[in-house]
Amino acid sequence: MPPWTLPALGAALIALAMLTDARLALILAVWFGAWALNAVLANRVAVSGLRLIVPLIFGVTLLVLWELSVRLYDISFVILPAPSAIWARMVTETDILWADFRQTILKGALAGYILGCGGAFLAALAVDRSGFLQRGLLPVGNFIAALPIVGTAPIFVMWFGFGWQSKSAVVVAMVFFPMLVNCVQGLKASDAMQRDLMQTYAASYGQTLMKLRLPSALPFIFNGLKICTTLALIGAIVAEFFGSPTVGMGFRIKIEMGRLAMDMVWAEIAVAALAGSGFYGLVALVERRLTFWHPSQRRG
C-alpha cells in the first residue's frame, strides 16, 4: 500500500459526504484531521510528553465530535445531551455531586476495597503455609472469581441495611476472591533456587517473606489491586439500586433517570469515570514506584 492511500481515501470519503450531507462532511473532516495529526505525532519517536498528548488529542476529538453531532443533528436532549450541557450541570451541582461521591466512593467503595483486599491478602498468607489448602483454594477461588458476585447485592442490603455498610459488604464479596487468587499466585512466584538461597542464609519464615517472597509477589498483588478498583466501583453503585439513603451516585442516577434529567445522569457518570480512572491511576502509580524492577514496567 503506498503511503498516500489512507489520506486519499479520507479525502474521497469527505468529498462524497459533501455531496449528500454537508454536516456529515464536517464531522468526517474533523475526525480525519485529528487522526492525521495523531498519526504524524505518533511516528515521531523522540518528542517528550507524546505518550500524554496523543491520547489527549484523541479524547478531545471524541468530545468535539460528540458536541458537533448533537448540535448539527439536533439530537434530543433526552437521548444524548451535549458535553457542554453536562459540564454546565457539573459546575452548578458541585455540592450534590460531591455528597454523592463521598457517600458512594469514599465510604462504600473505599472501605470495602480496603477491607476486602486486606482480608484477601491476610487469607493468602494463611493459605500459603499449607500446600493442600493452596491446591484446594486456587481452583475454587478462580471459579468464584468468575461468578456474577454482583448478584449478592440484594442479600447484603437486606442484612446490613440501606447505609454505606451494605455497599462495603458487597464490595468485599466482589474483590475478595480475585485478590486472593492473585496473592496466592504471587506468593508462589519466587524461584525454588531463590528460596533455597534464603534457607542457606538461615533466614526465618518472616525474613524470607519480607525480603524475597513479598517483593516477588508484588506484580501479582498489584494486578489484583488494579482489577479490584473497577470491581469496587461497580459493586458500590449496583448495591445502591437495591436500597440506599437519599444520597449516593447509584441513587442519583436512578432518580434523575426517572425525571429524564439526562445531563445530571451524565454528570454522575463523568464523576464516576473520573473517580474510576483516578483510582486506577493511583494504584498504577504506586505499582510503578514499588515494582520498578519488573520487565513490564520498563520504559521502551
Binding site: 478498583t229 473497577t230 466501583l233 461497580i234 453503585i237 449496583v238 439500586f241 451516585m249 447509584g250 442516577i253 445522569v265 454522575e268 457518570i269 464516576a272 469515570a273 473517580a275 474510576g276 480512572s277 483510582f279 486506577y280
Partner: peptide, 8 residues
Amino acid sequence: QTIPILAI
C-alpha cells in the same frame, strides 16, 4: 472500563 457499567 473504569466507568461503572450500571451507570450507563
